[in-house]
């Protein structure tokens, strides 16, 4: 995995996701400062940093759940459309997993997973359902397919939400703090699914506080603070020898030193 991540070896290939000099303000708050980032095919980029560092905002900007003030966002070299059907089509190709799962509470788990394939991709009910059942089995919630989200545990809901995104056969998946709302005993069942996905070659951007996951799975770790990317690098190098003081302070604080 690691030899694929060195920047030089892939300069000729178009990144799946690319951010160029992205700026964003929330009122007086400067939440993204000159953020540039490239994510290549099959790469797993884990974004970490203190809360309020802009990492969620960056993740959400990639499919325009947040707008940006200036800069560029490119998906496979194409500028992210700003509205309309073009934007919807682009979003359909990018999966998004949220902190709060955000399953549709009035639909069964199965209907949650078939909604996108049927309404957006135009699959027949049978096709969509067989695809959905396969994915639900893969994330381990096939037995819950006919229940509504409220009847599932948090971990099960989040795994169903991952299946919902996968059903669109996305080019890349974004995870916005996928385990932050979970009880501790359910975190691993979700991380396991994500590890599997990474091993299968999915392009992933993961905003998380799970450092062990970052060390184990990431091709590259991006550390953000105050809306800036402070440093990025291979996980071992970052965790063992952080270059910036901010990163050292952050790592110390979460290790409880």
């Amino acid at each position: 995995m690691s030899q694929r991540t060195t920047e030089g070896s892939r300069s000729g290939e178009t990144p799946v996701i690319e951010l160029r000099h992205v700026e964003k303000h929330f009122g007086d708050l400067h939440v993204l400062r000159d953020v540039s980032l490239s994510v290549h095919r099959g790469e797993v980029v884990v974004v970490i940093g203190p809360s309020g560092s802009g990492k969620s905002t960056m993740c959400r900007a990639i499919n325009r759940l947040e707008t940006i003030d200036s800069g560029e966002i490119l998906i496979e070299g194409e500028p992210l459309p700003q509205e309309g059907r073009e934007l919807a089509r682009m979003r359909a190709e990018l999966g998004m997993v949220f902190q709060q799962f955000n399953l549709f509470s009035h639909m069964s788990v199965l209907d949650n997973v078939t909604l996108g394939p049927r309404d957006v991709l135009g699959l027949s009910r049978e096709e969509a359902e067989s695809r959905a059942m396969e994915l639900l089995a893969r994330v381990g919630v096939a037995e819950q397919a006919h229940k509504v989200p409220a009847q599932l545990s948090g971990g099960q809901q989040q795994r169903a939400a991952i299946a919902r995104s996968l059903a669109m056969r996305p080019k890349a998946m974004m995870f916005d703090e996928p385990t932050s709302a979970l009880d501790p005993e359910m975190i691993n069942e979700v991380l396991d699914v994500m590890v599997e996905l990474a091993r299968g070659g999915m392009t992933m951007v993961v905003v998380t506080h799970e450092m062990s996951f970052a060390r184990r799975v990431a091709d590259r770790v991006v550390f953000m603070a105050d809306g800036q990317i402070m440093e990025e690098g291979a996980p071992d190098a970052f965790f063992d020898h952080p270059r910036t003081q901010r990163a050292r302070d952050f790592l110390d604080s979460i290790r409880g030193h």
């Binding site: 499919n63 759940l65 059907r85 919807a88 089509r89 682009m90 979003r91 359909a92 190709e93 990018l94 999966g95 998004m96 949220f98 709060q100 799962f101 955000n102 399953l103 549709f104 509470s105 009035h106 909604l115 996108g116 309404d119 957006v120 939400a161 919902r164 995104s165 669109m168």
Partner: peptide, 24 residues
């Protein structure tokens, strides 16, 4: 969040209204 999730799946505004907002 549910509206954002629907948006992320690539549903259009009309589809979000029809499938998520109005039924609920």
């Amino acid at each position: 969040g549910q509206i954002e999730a629907a948006r992320s799946l690539g549903l259009t505004f009309g589809q979000i209204l029809r499938r998520v907002v109005i039924p609920q």
